[in-house]
């Protein structure tokens, strides 16, 4: 039983680490603001697929790590990730049966909510930024979602088969 769980955990942790690397990887000025929120997408996927193991607790810890590496207000990303993880877990059965197009629309809404929460907290804390910095990742995030979904489904199936 425990071996089964470990073998299922390893691929998830690996994807999260890669996601964190992609998040802090330097990109040229101009492209940088279009970087998708990799970790938000990963949290949505794993909370949808394995909601018992990877849900809001994980999302919160990832958020804190993000806050530290970004130097933002401690708890800002944690709160936003926590909220979208909660919504995903709440509706995970529904989302699993959505066709990919409908799922992408849901992901778009979740990413928009995520950015809105960050925007809102920034507003309260007095941090100013250009509107593009918030909304560009929502669009690119939705565009990469179908590919990420297929890739991660492969990872999940392989993890299950290998267990």
């Amino acid at each position: 039983m425990s071996r089964d769980r470990d073998s299922r955990r390893l691929p998830v942790i690996a994807t999260l680490l890669v996601g964190l690397m992609l998040t802090i990887l330097p990109l040229p000025e101009g492209i940088e603001q279009f970087r998708p929120d990799w970790l938000a997408l990963l949290v949505i996927f794993w909370a949808m697929q394995l909601p018992r193991t990877w849900s809001i607790g994980t999302a919160w810890i990832i958020g804190i790590i993000l806050d530290v590496s970004y130097g933002t207000l401690l708890g800002q990303h944690a709160l936003a990730l926590c909220v979208i993880a909660f919504i995903t877990v709440r509706f995970h059965l529904l989302m699993r049966v959505f066709p990919l197009s409908q799922l992408s629309a849901t992901v778009f809404a979740l990413l928009a909510l995520y950015q809105f929460l960050l925007f809102w907290i920034n507003g309260v804390a007095g941090v100013t930024a250009q509107a593009m910095d918030y909304w560009a990742p929502v669009i690119t995030g939705t565009l990469v979602w179908p590919f990420l979904y297929m890739f991660l489904s492969g990872v999940r199936d392989r993890a299950r088969a290998g267990a």
């Binding site: 802090i24 940088e32 590496s69 941090v127």
Partner: peptide, 10 residues
């Protein structure tokens, strides 16, 4: 070579 906060020039 590490990107920090996207909202600020860091």
């Amino acid at each position: 070579a590490v990107d920090a906060n996207p909202y600020e020039h860091n």
